[in-house]
């Protein structure tokens, strides 16, 4: 990509991001979401983040699913979920989860 295209690429990305993030706040005082939608929105965090995580650990290297005991992403994710469930502590989940991932990767030799 040329220098001009790269600058254009970044400018476009800035505008797209603002076009997604801002309108709802911009028009906040002019409309309200119907109660049913507001109810549905309570499920957004859990649904979106899980939809990011699960494929990321099952397909760590692209199109091939790696549902086996040699996939450190999957194993470390299961461990991190258990740590989070029992400790309810975000920092502990991140630090111990990463440690588990690095150890598993070293141990599995992948």
């Amino acid at each position: 990509m040329s220098e001009t295209s790269l600058s254009l690429l970044i400018l476009g990305m800035v505008l797209i991001n603002l076009a997604i993030r801002y309108p709802v706040f911009l028009l906040a005082d002019r409309f309200r979401f119907p109660p049913l939608i507001e109810r549905a929105l309570a499920f957004v965090p859990a649904a979106v983040l899980t939809a990011i995580i699960v494929p990321a650990v099952i397909f760590p290297h692209g199109p091939q699913a790696e549902l086996d005991w040699h996939n450190p992403y999957l194993l470390a994710a299961i461990l991190a979920a258990a740590i989070s469930y029992f400790t309810r502590n975000l920092l502990a989940t991140i630090v111990l989860g990463m440690a588990a991932f690095l150890l598993l990767r070293w141990w599995l030799g992948v």
Binding site: A46, P72, A76, T93, F101
Partner: peptide
């Protein structure tokens, strides 16, 4: 270094206590 797992660990730590 495999630091890409950090995002997964962060999101897990956000999601699980909320369930």
């Amino acid at each position: 270094l495999g630091l890409e797992f950090a995002m997964v660990a962060t999101f897990i730590g956000i999601v699980i206590p909320g369930l």
